[in-house]
Design a protein around this nucleic acid. Sequence first.
DNA 1: CTATTGGGTAAGTGAACGCTTACTTAGAGG
DNA 2: CCTCTAAGTAAGCGTTCACTTACCCAATAG
Lengths: 214, 214
Amino acid sequence: MTRSLPTGADVSRNGAKKRLSADERRAQILEVAGTVFAEEGFAGAKIRQIAKACGVTEALLYKFFPSKEVLFQETLGAKVAAADVQSFLDTLPNDLTLEEVFGRVARRILEVGIGDEILHRLLLAASLSGVPETRSLYVTWRLPYIEFLSRIVAEGVERGELRSVDPVLTARAFVGLVMDCVISCQLWNDAGEAVREPDALIRNNVPTFVRGLL
Amino acid sequence: MTRSLPTGADVSRNGAKKRLSADERRAQILEVAGTVFAEEGFAGAKIRQIAKACGVTEALLYKFFPSKEVLFQETLGAKVAAADVQSFLDTLPNDLTLEEVFGRVARRILEVGIGDEILHRLLLAASLSGVPETRSLYVTWRLPYIEFLSRIVAEGVERGELRSVDPVLTARAFVGLVMDCVISCQLWNDAGEAVREPDALIRNNVPTFVRGLL
DNA sequence: CTATTGGGTAAGTGAACGCTTACTTAGAGG
DNA sequence: CCTCTAAGTAAGCGTTCACTTACCCAATAG
């Protein structure tokens, strides 16, 4: 597995390493740790490796994070904070057609997933290693979409515009369909170029799904 | 993470451990290693742990497998051999409606996924740790479904019975939808009881998807 | 200039890791 | 009953792990 990490070894012209402020260093460590944990999983990631990628010694990491476990949790926490699904959903216009809503949600999931290569790997790695904080990543990144679409579907069913499907199962299926595209692409390079250009995926799958609800 | 492994410490009435033949022991090690690797990932699983769960010493594992890496690969290989997707697809009647075909494929994926708690965890763990053999698990467990459904869809499109969707993208979406159900359930206990009784999922989602293709 | 603070390191610690060696003993075949 | 093969073990090898201690020195304030 080749990988190009930010080395963090910011070098000034005399060759000496630049000192970062505590905040800067902390942020850098979290970012680097995210990529390493995502690549190797919790057990596979080594503190030495993260420190080296940051361009500092292990001892410095322990000035900021008391243990590997805490570092992992804070890495997850940073991802959760950055996901910010809710504000996307809140700013969706409410005069969209059903197909437009599903399309926008799909596009958002695909774009964030592709733009942040770490997100899904980290979510999966954390889930597999069974740390309790996993739940919060799931709740922050996946659940809001499901709850949002589920409400939309329920309204459609109530108004008689949609077949009487189960709103939650339906929303979960759609979100799963889209998320699986990202995972397939990132883990197995499945879907090749298709996923990197989300339009084709959306044009093909969203109408199918939405038409099936009518 | 609590776990109940087969201890393999088959004890006869006098309390002495029973000796297994080489074949029996080998099979037992592979089975136990499968559960441990699935739970902990490659790096997280320890040879000592696997040996203990087998009720033998580490040295014995090395009589059968020259290294941890080979043990992991053979564990994956055993899963691949057991998956046997192709023979299921080959024995599907060819007078089924589109909805019946999709329904049967979905049921198969759900039942195997739920029946074998290791399968998807192992697939994900292997994929995250980036071992090359991952590809073979993906190719054996996921790809056959996609190729099969993709052919079915392509035929439907050609006969003008279906909208002119991209067969591969469509098949991949459906398989992803179903696989994601299993993963969601096993990693986050999402979908709660729903997935353990696949009928509700199939009744709700398959008709939606298939109707959308018409 | 000097004092002080805080970013940063060198050199470890004991424990646990993957793996090996030298040995023991259960139990089927004669 | 004895023999001999192969299942199985005890003990430890060198290495790497997460983490610690004791120290250094760049940069800022006075």
